[in-house]
């Protein structure tokens, strides 16, 4: 009887109300302790594991929707896909030629004792999940620590810089896009040589802040990474300058098309003279034969696991 009476319309349920308020207060407490960076760091492994689960779910959904898209794709899209497949076959031959030439060049440099340009390695991966919520603009790629990807890697696609890796899981990595509010990248104009900070803006893409000589910036000027932070290679294309009522912003090159395949590039890893002396010259071995051999073996491993790497 008492239980029945408790469930009547309009009857007060103090325990349930108190429970609801209690859960709300507990959640607020949980949010408050996350204002500490130590707590946020402690949550990173759990988030990395969850990235893996999200990527698996998205990958299976991706397969389903890929078939669905093909069903509804128009004639032009199908022709474009065939054209691109042919291009891939041609490029495969060029890749083999490039590998052979790289190997030969390294041998020549060794014979001449020549200090060549350090070759930046990297991993090609595919975007398998995306996060465009109110808190962050991010993507998940299907290459992680097992493929040699670590936090801080620059991410580019065929058009330009996409963002950087902020967390790596076992086989996944989370990429913070340039459009995210927390993204800060040092950039420079190709024509004006003006240096500035590129700050993510969810509304317009990204804004140019703290420009040294804003008067020299030209409308439509190409902007690239300046490499001042030591994390990004200098000269990666970022976008084109455009002025609006709030100041200069960049039309990001990566937004030309949807993101699909991306390349994850390691930081330049400059060696200081002190480090070079301490290592007896071994620190300068980015394009040694040993490295190339290990890169090729990584390529083979990546191709077998779905993500491809090229020298």
């Amino acid at each position: 009887m008492a239980r029945h009476a408790r469930h009547q319309v309009g009857a007060p349920r103090f325990a349930a109300r108190a429970g609801l308020v209690g859960i709300g207060i507990a959640l607020l407490g949980l949010l408050m302790i996350q204002s500490s960076s130590d707590v946020r760091r402690g949550l990173e492994p759990a988030r990395a594991r969850m990235d893996g689960i999200t990527s698996k779910l998205s990958a299976s959904a991706n397969k389903h929707f890929a078939g669905y898209t093909w069903l509804f794709a128009n004639k032009a899209s199908k022709e474009r896909i065939r054209e691109l497949e042919n291009q891939v076959q041609v490029l495969e031959r060029w890749r083999e030629a490039s590998r052979t030439m790289s190997q030969r060049m390294i041998e020549y440099e060794d014979m001449l004792d020549l200090m060549g340009e350090p070759q930046i390695g990297g991993v090609t991966a595919r975007i398998i999940a995306e996060t465009n919520g109110p808190f962050t603009h991010a993507r998940i790629a299907n290459a992680g620590a097992v493929h040699g990807v670590f936090d801080g890697f620059a991410v580019v696609n065929e058009h330009g810089l996409v963002g950087r890796v902020v967390r790596t899981g076992h086989r996944t990595s989370r990429i913070l896009l340039l459009t995210d509010y927390n993204s800060r990248i040092p950039v420079m104009g190709r024509t004006s040589l003006d240096r500035a900070l590129l700050v993510g803006d969810k509304k317009v893409g990204a804004r140019i802040l703290h420009a040294e000589t804003p008067d020299l910036i030209v409308e439509g000027e190409e902007w690239v990474t300046s490499g001042d932070d030591g994390l990004f290679e200098r000269g990666l294309r970022v976008g084109f300058a455009h002025r609006d009522k709030d100041g200069w912003r960049l039309d990001l090159a990566m937004q030309t098309e949807g993101l699909d395949f991306v390349r994850l590039l390691p930081p330049p890893n400059f060696v200081t003279p002190e480090e070079l002396m301490a290592s007896d010259g071994k620190a300068l071995t980015p394009n040694s034969v040993d490295n190339l051999v290990s890169q090729n073996s990584e390529d083979i491993a990546l191709q077998s696991s779905g993500a491809g790497g090229t020298p």
Binding site: L27, L31, Q34, R47, M50, T131, P134, F135
Partner: peptide, 8 residues
């Protein structure tokens, strides 16, 4: 977790 928001 999916949306990379603060937990809670």
């Amino acid at each position: 977790f999916v949306g990379e928001a603060p937990i809670g």
